[in-house]
């Protein structure tokens, strides 16, 4: 990117407009869509959004359409290489087939994270997540 553009939210995302992007949210959701707009908070407008879920070597998509995501909830935004996106060694299956497995994975992960944060809080002196000002 041009070094004249400072490294700010607005600078870094400028090249991503009208590109197909992967957006990961704080709740773990992975959204694919075309970035149409953003602002200084990284509020995003995604067009033709699909949510992708994964389990083992399978993935599934569910179509959502136009999304306006509040910037706070965004963990990462990455560009999808259109030349390579079809080369992933995963097979697509029906969303309804994969959803129960995915839900199980999410539930498992939640339990693991809870156990981890319990240890971190009680033995390692860390604070708890979800404190003041944390909507999650």
């Amino acid at each position: 990117m041009d070094s004249l553009i400072p490294f700010t939210t607005s600078g870094a995302l400028m090249d991503c407009v009208d590109r197909k992007m992967l957006v990961i949210l704080r709740d773990g959701r992975k959204l694919h869509g075309v970035l149409r707009s953003y602002d200084q908070f990284a509020n995003l407008v995604l067009e033709d959004t699909v949510e992708r879920i994964y389990h083992g070597n399978a993935f599934a998509e569910s179509w959502y359409g136009l999304y306006l995501i509040r910037g706070e909830n965004v963990v990462l935004i990455g560009e999808i290489d259109l030349d390579q996106e079809d080369d992933v060694p995963l097979k697509q299956v029906d969303y309804n087939v994969l959803e129960p497995y995915h839900k199980e994975d999410v539930e498992d992960k939640k339990h693991r994270e809870e156990a981890k944060s319990q240890v971190l809080f009680e033995e390692k002196g860390f604070s708890k997540e979800g404190g003041e000002g944390d909507g999650y």
């Binding site: 149409r36 136009l66 306006l68 509040r70």
Partner: peptide
Amino acid sequence: RGSTIKYLRIPDNLL
């Protein structure tokens, strides 16, 4: 309240 929102799903044709 805006700060509690995760995302909004709006009609596709709006853009």
